[in-house]
């Protein structure tokens, strides 16, 4: 029970004091910083000295960009170019964020204390690389970003009157439901991602506790890799479907 509560609540590592505000920095924020730095470096390395005839790492970059572009083009239609960079970024970020628990090789303070016996490690902040998407604050932000993007692009491409007209689309009785739709989309997007990743995380923790050697490695393939990539794909797919509905 206590362990479950520990999984659910944000684990604050340190606080930042700025302008008289006290901002707690939780471990999911630190993991997201790590992911951002990794993705930025990855993007710089992979796109350095591009050539007309691709070779080596440029092949990989082109396949990746082309896959994302085709995916967005299939779903959104002729406005795809405005949305492909954002959705591609979200896709890459979510993939890395969901599967990052397979890179959790940093030992916790307690383990270091047991191995080395040094007093210093006993008060080490408890930091482990866990998927940040198992924190509901992260996924709620993701869902909010998508809903704001849907709202903004709807107003941008159809202007305010077109958007208001779209709210009363099938008949004026539907206006409250269409407004409610934004709230339910936000809830379903964020809760789907949160619930899937948290469920996979809890199941993997139980398995690690139950049977230690060999077996978790194979189950991790499904729960960490497959489920994580599938959920990132689903999130981007649903976002693009909502956007397509908003701009048409």
């Amino acid at each position: 029970m206590d362990k479950l509560n520990n999984v659910l609540k944000a684990n604050d590592i340190f606080n930042i004091h700025i302008f008289g505000l006290n901002i707690p920095i939780s471990d999911s924020i630190i993991v997201m910083w790590i992911i951002s730095v990794f993705l930025i470096i990855f993007a710089f390395v992979i796109t350095r000295n591009l050539k007309t005839i691709p070779e080596g790492k440029q092949n990989f970059a082109e396949v990746l960009v082309e896959f994302i572009n085709n995916f967005i083009k299939d779903n959104i239609g002729h406005h795809w170019r405005s949305f492909a960079p954002y959705l591609g970024t979200i896709f890459l970020f979510l993939i890395v964020a969901n599967i990052i628990s397979i890179f959790s090789i940093i030992p916790t303070g307690e383990e270091l204390y047991k191995i080395t016996g040094l007093e210093f490690f006993e008060h080490w902040p408890e930091f482990a690389i866990q998927p940040p998407t198992k924190d509901i604050n992260v996924t709620a932000t993701m869902g909010l970003m998508t809903v704001l993007l849907v709202l903004g692009s709807s107003i941008r491409f159809k202007n305010v009157f077109g958007w208001l007209k779209g709210l009363a689309k099938p008949s004026p009785i539907m206006i409250p439901f269409n407004i409610l739709d934004y709230g339910t989309r936000f809830l379903s997007l964020s809760l789907r991602l949160f619930g899937n990743i948290l469920a996979a995380f809890i199941v993997m923790e139980l398995i690690y506790g139950l049977i230690s050697p060999v077996v978790p490695a194979f189950l991790s393939l499904y729960f960490d890799l497959f489920d994580g990539i599938l959920q990132a794909y689903i999130f981007v797919f649903l976002s693009s479907v909502y956007i397509a509905e908003a701009v048409e």
């Binding site: 789907r192 619930g195 899937n196 469920a199 689903i234």
Partner: peptide
């Protein structure tokens, strides 16, 4: 994945 959402 969409059907799974209800379980989630």
């Amino acid at each position: 994945a969409l059907a799974e959402a209800t379980a989630i």
